[in-house]
Amino acid sequence: MPNLADLPASPLLNEVRRDGFAFAPADTMRPLLTSSGGLSDWNDFADSWNQLEPDPYLAAKGRFRRRRHATFSALAHGDVTPEPHQPHFQALQYNALQGGIERWFEPIVDTVVHGNSLRTILDFCHAFFGSLAPSVERWHIEVHQFRIEATAGTAGEPTPEGSHRDGVDYVLVLLVNRHNIASGTTTIHAPDGRLLGDFTLTHPLDAALIHDPSVFHGVTPVLPLVADEHAFRDVLVVTFRASPAAAG
């Protein structure tokens, strides 16, 4: 893992500790990521969003959200390790729309799981979130590739469940690409509903870093700028949760 003490990450660490979230523009994220590893396969990594499958749990809206999912684990001072494919689960208290059930999504393909860019992103998250929670011995990590599509007649909904928490400890939302869309503004709220901040992930590697127990987050719907052109928003979401297995 990289030593974040040697990197310009401390302001972001302080923001997350103080406010529960931080916005990191691409100019900040890129050196943080490349200090953890390389992004040599970034073009292939970004292109993999073209192979995502429809979300089958959104019924009629499923065709406007595509995704793949993978699970990893990491010891505090160990490497991030892929785990066997497994379902994504959220309690109803965190996702009233789709919580309480095991959701099986198509797995992230092996070339992405073992590729340079994803490994670099996960190593950065391991170091960053580990610095915020040094007492955690083992992490349960989930990775989601999302593509939100929009048409002239139907807005794309990045967060159809509304402003929410994910039921984890930390979240990274990293923009991979956006094409022909307006809006898609990330909003951060206090538990009482007060707006704490908002920003739009515009450039690849723009990121949000969130302490999930402290704040709620959501993203406004996206609409096409040009009605008859393909319109989409591609993001990578990485969540870190302290594993119960660490108690032993």
Score class of each variant (00 low, 15 high):
128 F>K: 06
82 P>I: 01
245 A>S: 14
22 A>M: 00
182 A>E: 14
6 D>N: 12
72 F>K: 03
132 L>F: 02
5 A>L: 10
151 T>L: 01
110 D>W: 07
92 L>D: 13
201 L>C: 02
111 T>S: 15
82 P>M: 04
19 D>M: 01
79 D>H: 12
109 V>W: 01
56 P>Q: 05
20 G>C: 02
19 D>I: 00
162 G>Q: 05
221 P>F: 00
184 G>F: 01
142 E>L: 09
247 A>V: 13
193 G>M: 06
204 P>Y: 01
127 A>D: 02
46 A>I: 03
242 A>G: 14
246 A>R: 14
131 S>E: 12
56 P>G: 03
19 D>L: 04
181 I>F: 03
204 P>D: 06
37 G>V: 01
202 T>P: 04
74 A>F: 00
186 T>I: 02
29 M>K: 04
221 P>Y: 02
21 F>K: 00
50 N>T: 12
63 R>M: 10
121 I>S: 02
27 D>H: 11
119 R>V: 08
28 T>A: 15
91 A>R: 15
151 T>S: 11
106 E>C: 10
226 V>T: 14
38 G>W: 05
47 D>F: 12
189 H>N: 09
4 L>W: 01
2 P>K: 11
163 S>C: 10
174 L>P: 00
191 P>T: 07
139 W>T: 00
51 Q>H: 15
67 R>N: 08
167 G>T: 07
104 W>S: 08
186 T>Y: 08
42 W>P: 04
56 P>S: 02
200 T>C: 10
214 S>A: 14
47 D>V: 04
168 V>P: 07
183 S>W: 08
133 A>V: 02
90 Q>M: 08
55 D>Y: 06
207 A>L: 03
211 H>F: 09
195 L>G: 08
128 F>C: 07
18 R>E: 13
59 A>T: 11
134 P>W: 05
30 R>S: 09
121 I>F: 04
120 T>W: 01
33 L>Q: 03
39 L>S: 06
181 I>D: 02
228 D>H: 10
